Amino acid sequence: MNTFTCQCANTLHFANSKCVSCGLMLGFIPDEAKLSAFTTNQYGNLQASCNGKLYRKCKNYADHDVCNWMVSYDDNHEYCISCRLNEVIPNLADSDNLTLWFRLEQAKRRLLYNVITLGLPIEGKSPNNPTGLGFAFLQDELEDQYGNELTVKNFVTTGHASGLITININEADHSSRIEMREKMGERYRTLVGHFRHESGHYYWDRLIAHSDKINEFRRLFGDERLSYVDSMREYYKHGPSNNWQNVWISAYASMHPWEDWAETWAHYLHMIDTLETANDFDFSVAGNKIANPIPSSEIHDQVYIASSFTHLFDNWCQLTKALNGLNRSMGLDDAYPFVISITALDKLRFVHEVISNKDY
């Protein structure tokens, strides 16, 4: 994730909506992947300082302040390209849900920033594209029991189906998410991680399922035609394979090839975003500058793609060693509690190749 610069030269961060130095309104311009300051011209229109073009606030920015993305002035949509993907938003009659929705939108926009900078396709649902990308933010259905006690009647399962990514809004509640992480025996569980994982299922459908990459996928990840229901039942009954650390990026990845792909995809996006942030801050480890990890959009040579992943992973090993050391100095858990096996590394390399080839 890059930082940005206000017209007053103050450093801006992706989630900012106002410059704390000069007070100007800020907005993210998706087609340029830039956060810009805005001024009002003589006609009352918002003009970006970065390019001089006119924009409008996304409706969710103007009405609810849960977004900071902009819509081009000549675009007929009321919503930005992030918010127009929403199929269902939380019930705002519950005042607590506005805060949870804000966090959900922040995590979603961070995912979409990754998608935009990597040049991946984003196509919403439409009559001609019923399996396009969409989001539904739902909450568990509660019911009264014994007069004054609420119990869960229907649980919302975070997941993906035919392009629709469903997120249980409890994942945006920090205490609920931590409780679930401990219950599941996980060392790592984040809101943006859910978005990245579920997007992996969507992009498997887009980039792998009907492509010439399917045989290579099956060689690395296994045959996805195995019963998902049976695999899930087996996983939750007996837990992950005993040797999962030697084969998979996480315990959950061992459940089924689809989950292996989604976990690996999410992990790759974690790496890309963190390395881009380190590069933006001019971070060096032992004198070695962390390079920008975003694959070139102009070079598709296989030698370049292979070498770029090797460089990316070398940088990642250096950076995470430093991050974990810093966290331990503060008495915190490791920022990166993973060990990548050779087999998992080959899968990450495959994700890198799929994204870098850009033949979609």
Score class of each variant (00 low, 15 high):
Met1Gln: 13
Asn2Gln: 08
Phe4Thr: 00
Cys6Phe: 00
Lys18Pro: 07
Ser21Pro: 12
Leu24Thr: 04
Leu26Asn: 04
Ile29Val: 12
Pro30Met: 00
Asp31Cys: 04
Tyr43Ser: 14
His64Leu: 12
His64Ala: 12
Val66Gly: 02
Met70Gln: 00
Val71Ser: 00
Tyr73Ser: 14
Asp74Ile: 15
Asn76Glu: 05
His77Lys: 08
Cys80Gln: 03
Ser82Ile: 02
Ser82Glu: 10
Val88Thr: 12
Asn91Ile: 15
Ser95Lys: 13
Arg103Tyr: 10
Gln106Lys: 14
Lys108Ile: 08
Val115Ser: 01
Gly124Pro: 06
Lys125Asp: 07
Gly132Lys: 10
Leu138Gln: 10
Glu141Arg: 14
Glu141Cys: 09
Gly147Ser: 10
Gly163Ser: 08
His174Gln: 11
Ile178Tyr: 12
Met180His: 15
Lys183Met: 05
Gly185Leu: 00
Leu191Tyr: 03
Ser199Leu: 13
Asp205Phe: 07
Ser211Arg: 10
Arg219Met: 13
Tyr235Leu: 11
Gly239Thr: 02
Ser241Val: 13
Trp244Gly: 02
Met255Ser: 05
Trp258Thr: 07
Glu263Arg: 04
Ile272Asp: 06
Thr277Gln: 13
Thr277Pro: 03
Phe283Glu: 06
Asn288Gln: 14
Asn288Lys: 13
Lys289Gly: 04
Asn292Ile: 04
Asn292Trp: 06
Val303His: 15
Ala306Thr: 09
Ser308Arg: 09
Leu312Asn: 08
Asp314Phe: 01
Asn315Asp: 13
Thr320Phe: 04
Gly325Tyr: 02
Ser329Asn: 11
Met330Ala: 10
Asp333His: 05
Ala335Gly: 04
Phe338Pro: 03
Phe338Ala: 00
Ile342Ala: 15
Ala344Asp: 01
Leu348Tyr: 04
Leu348Arg: 12
Phe350Leu: 12
His352Ala: 03
Val354Asp: 08
